[in-house]
Design a protein around this nucleic acid. Structure first.
Lengths: 229, 229
DNA sequence: AAAATAGTGTCTTTCAGACAGTATACA
DNA sequence: TGTATACTGTCTGAAAGACACTATTTT
């Protein structure tokens, strides 16, 4: 076995250090479809390509804070809850230099999502069941390894959908809206009575007593999420 | 082509970069209890404390490869399958400088685990149900934020136990051994017939037709894992 | 009243927990 | 033959899928 002291004698200042970025998948529902905020790159590499918003981690900044700051700067929404997804560290993932990316996700309610200013360089892309993003109905190739990042993000979101779904509906939501979120994220339809029973039995939502307004037909009851703990 | 001024705004060479390490939780079962390899630190900070084996990520080295190399150097086992757990980036997690740690786990079979050379500075610590490691029956405080890393690692291992358990038993194993692994990792007992049914129905293991040898009583049938895909 | 969606009752299937039973090896 | 463990049969209950049914609101 190698001398354990090597770790301690190692002076990292003497060696090249990688850059570290956070790349953020900002996700929300639009017209019952999962959407993702993309920004168009202006400079090489991948100039003109669509990419996840990202930025370098400052030397005195925690990772979660860096993800929050990037989203505040790119999207103008502060105080977003972010969740770490995975660290991506392939050597050639950025052609310029070694950059390790820590991927994050943030989930937006519909009213927050529509409030995002979109322009030629900031767009919401629909994400289909296999994780391919499309803008104006056209599949787009993402810069760097961002397609990998999106695939992993979607897979983990699906695994955590029971809790995550509450962050993707309005504060007061109907069971229909909640089910639509589950179906859009999972990519397949769900059984209505079974879904309703499971959600109500789980004790993570409470009826408000109020109902939807301005519905063409019978309005549904509004519920609120009961946060964990 | 490249606008130097704009690029300069994004030139990470101009900014301080963090160091990046991989820290590895090497886990296995010993006497039906989950155990963890710890190394004792010789130098400050946390001199004398027990810690997860770790090391710096080289500038031209993928993250997974760094984790594999660290384990090869510290434990002498090459070709171990490693799985990323989480990136830890609190600013003060290392008092010397900013170091971002990418945590990994590796799972060992019992025969691999007992082959690990232990000495005064390399020990296998028992891990109890709440994630506290103990050496010689005495709970130990880990260096840095390694207690956090271990807690998160254990939580994710539990969530993935159905697949992970196969990496913690011998290549040919009995249902009793597989159940013991599940129980040790989850920290609670399981129902035997239900466990047996669930494992066999899932189609991820196959009977060999052989049975254990040298058992005091009725020997159990030996199974092998059927890898995914 | 018609339309359209909200919400329920209930049958069936699946699967986990419980527990007692049978099977098989060795001393 | 006794004993300890391997393995199974079967009852029960919880939860999901399927599907038809009732309920409620607006036009």
């Amino acid at each position: 076995m190698e001398d354990a002291a090597i770790l301690n004698d190692y002076d990292p200042q003497a060696y090249d250090r990688p850059s570290v970025t956070v790349d953020c998948a900002l996700l929300g529902l639009l017209a019952d479809r999962l959407h993702l905020l993309l920004v168009r790159r202006r400079d090489p590499p991948f100039a003109g390509c669509w990419a996840l918003p990202g930025g370098f981690v400052a030397i005195d900044e925690p990772l979660d804070a860096a993800a929050g700051r990037v989203l505040a700067q790119k999207v103008g929404l502060t105080g977003l809850a972010v969740e770490q997804v995975h660290a991506f560290g392939a050597v050639e993932r950025d052609p310029r230099m070694r950059i390790i990316a820590i991927a994050y996700r943030a989930l937006l309610r519909p009213d927050e999502l529509v409030a995002i200013p979109v322009d030629a360089d900031h767009r919401l892309a629909a994400v289909d069941a296999d994780g391919t993003p499309s803008i104006d109905g056209e599949a787009v190739d993402l810069a760097f390894d961002h397609a990998d990042i999106l695939r992993v993000t979607l897979a983990k979101l699906r695994a955590a959908i029971d809790e995550a779904a509450f962050a993707l509906v309005p504060e007061r939501f109907t069971l229909r809206e909640l089910q639509a979120v589950h179906e859009a994220v999972l990519g397949h339809a769900l059984n209505k009575p079974a879904f309703r029973r499971r959600m109500l039995d789980r004790g993570r939502m409470r009826a408000t007593g109020d109902v939807e307004e301005r519905r063409a037909f019978r309005p549904a009851e509004l519920y609120i999420h009961i946060p964990k703990g």
